[in-house]
């Protein structure tokens, strides 16, 4: 079965004209996306992340027909995004979190009605979908409010509805939770999970908030310097990159940092000490046993590094997988 998104060696280079001296301008080639092979199957929820300038947006723009690839191929829903742009965007949904696709000065309801006309949504289906979304996202009280008066969280719920009203098989969401409060974030995530479960909507999500991905995505693709540096289940990423763990012990009495083989004390706070170790060298059980042999302890806990932490470390290493 063909993937919903298929790219082969997808590449994008930009020519940047930088000033060099008074009049002379230098042309320089900048590689934004350096050969990406990606295949996303129907019904997947994929987290697509990377540091700023890694090529995330450029990739998404090539998949939505906004930008032409410099090399390589991309097919989305079996279509070429550039030559079949109109046909393609009719069947996908796009949310750019920082930009609105709603009509700023009109009531929210009007934006939906305009999209119905533009996407040629069958009236019956439109009303059914809208009713479902109003219910799911609790849009009722704000339907008659001009978009400019909505809060960021309310607006994002409007944006999601706008992107999904026409039953797209695939949605691209660029930072859908940026700037939202905890409640709104939760609402957005729950909604996306339900769309995926009930309608089989394929979701490609870029975000800075890894909690989005931890809660939604089975699969995480990390891009850095225009290349994919990780592609696989979130758990696999944790296992592969998260080899450092920490044992937190509460001692009966305060004391100097513990001398335990294969560990380093990374922090001391009163009677509590943090011992970091590499999972591939020793085990938590061995570390705890060694501590107990040295000093009496009151409590013990094992901390796994947050995905966020791991990703940051990965970026800092320069994406060298």
């Amino acid at each position: 079965m063909a993937g919903v998104v298929e790219t082969r060696d997808l590449t994008k280079t930009f020519t940047v004209r930088a000033k060099a001296g008074r009049v002379r301008r230098e042309r320089r080639e900048v590689v934004a996306v350096a050969g990406i092979d990606l295949r996303i199957s129907s019904g997947e929820m994929v987290g697509y992340i990377g540091p700023n300038g890694a090529g995330k947006s450029t990739t998404i723009k090539m998949m939505t027909g906004v930008l032409t690839p410099s090399a390589g191929t991309v097919r989305v829903l079996g279509l070429d995004p550039i030559t079949s742009r109109v046909e393609l965007v009719r069947r996908i949904g796009v949310v750019f979190g920082q930009r609105t696709q709603l009509w700023w000065d009109l009531p929210l309801r009007d934006s939906f009605d305009l999209l119905r006309a533009v996407y040629r949504i069958d009236p019956q289906r439109y009303h059914a979908n809208l009713a479902a979304f109003v219910d799911l996202l609790d849009l009722g009280p704000m339907l008659d409010t001009p978009v400019r008066q909505l809060s960021l969280g309310q607006r994002m719920r409007g944006e999601l509805t706008a992107a999904l009203l026409h039953d797209p098989a695939l949605v691209f969401l660029d930072e859908p939770t940026i700037g939202l409060d905890v409640v709104s974030k939760h609402a957005v995530r729950r909604f996306l999970a339900e769309m995926n479960r009930d309608h089989g909507t394929t979701v490609v999500l870029t975000t800075h908030d890894l909690a989005d991905i931890e809660q939604l995505c089975e699969r995480m693709v990390i891009i850095d310097h225009g290349r994919i540096v990780h592609d696989g289940p979130l758990e696999e990423f944790r296992i592969r990159h998260g080899t450092q763990r920490t044992v937190v012990v509460d001692l009966e009495v305060e004391g100097p940092p513990l001398q335990v083989p294969n560990t380093t004390v990374v922090r001391v706070d009163g009677a509590r000490q943090w011992l970091s170790f590499d999972r591939t060298v020793t085990t938590a059980a061995a570390v705890v046993a060694a501590v107990v042999a040295l000093r009496p302890i009151r409590d013990v806990a094992i901390e796994e590094p947050a995905v966020e932490e791991l990703v940051r470390e990965l970026y800092e290493r320069g994406g060298g997988a």
Binding site: V86, F96, V118, Y119
Partner: peptide
């Protein structure tokens, strides 16, 4: 870059 928003709609 707001021109991008025009291209993600199924309209000329």
């Amino acid at each position: 870059g707001v021109f991008d928003m025009l291209l993600i709609r199924p309209v000329n």
